[in-house]
Amino acid sequence: MSADTATRVEDKLYLNRYLVDAGRAHIKVRPHTKPSPQLLSLLNVCPAHCYELNSAGQVEIATDGCVECGTCRIIAEASGDIEWNYPRGGYGVLFKFG
């Protein structure tokens, strides 16, 4: 993905309201050395661009901008690549319109 597109997603997320549960990510990526194809696909599929490659080539997640759609769960929970939960009650995205 181009840097240009990534910037635009962040602009979109900036419009939303969130109550971030600091230090309690509701989705966790299983530690790995080489990412599975499922994990790699999340770099593009996640509509909030929460997944990114780090300098070591591993997939990392930052859940602050998550819109709680569940797409990554559909793709990568069964393989054990990610652990998926809802945020604690009251936290996460707070839609004004929905």
């Binding site: 597109t5 997603v9 979109k12 499922q38 696909s41 593009n44 599929v45 509509p47 661009h49 793709i75």
Partner: peptide, 23 residues
């Protein structure tokens, strides 16, 4: 309200980004 949706399996296969399609 403006949007676009596609099958998750198709997104995974093609590597298209949802926000790219929306734009």
């Amino acid at each position: 309200s403006l949007g676009i949706g596609c099958l998750v399996a198709d997104f995974e296969k093609t590597g298209q980004t949802p926000y790219g399609l929306l734009e």
